[in-house]
């Protein structure tokens, strides 16, 4: 199973709508990086509104993908992390320190634009 990645101007938009298993997550990491490479996108929004579990593995994949994208010159914002998921991450001791977040897709795009203008 593959997660669709949409392109909008200079941005890539991803909405994860499925219960992520390890393979899908790794596949997504590869897909996103090659898409950034091909499209030259400068910003990425990953919307997690429909994700109801993020365990330490998925958190690591997401954290890594943010760092990797940054290395390739694309800023990433995670949006729509559910309260239950956020609390679980905190309990796990995962703080995703270097990751930008926003309440929803719209706010995420605003945040990206601000970051990129600076």
């Amino acid at each position: 199973m593959r997660i669709p990645i949409l392109k909008l101007h200079n941005y890539l938009l991803i909405s994860i709508q499925t219960d992520l298993d390890d393979k899908t997550a790794i596949q997504f990491q590869e897909d996103l990086l090659s898409k950034i490479h091909k499209s030259g996108a400068t910003g990425v929004v990953i919307d997690l509104t429909s994700v109801d579990i993020i365990d330490s593995f998925i958190a690591k994949v997401l954290g890594d993908v943010v760092t990797m994208s940054d290395l390739m010159g694309a800023k990433v914002v995670l949006t729509g992390i559910q309260p239950a998921v956020a609390m679980t991450l905190i309990d796990l001791g995962i703080h995703l320190k270097d990751v930008q977040t926003a309440l929803d897709l719209e706010q995420g795009l605003i945040k990206l634009r601000q970051e990129l203008e600076e």
Partner: peptide, 10 residues
Amino acid sequence: QAAEAVRLIG
């Protein structure tokens, strides 16, 4: 922890 969680949800 609460503040960290608030940051995670954006």
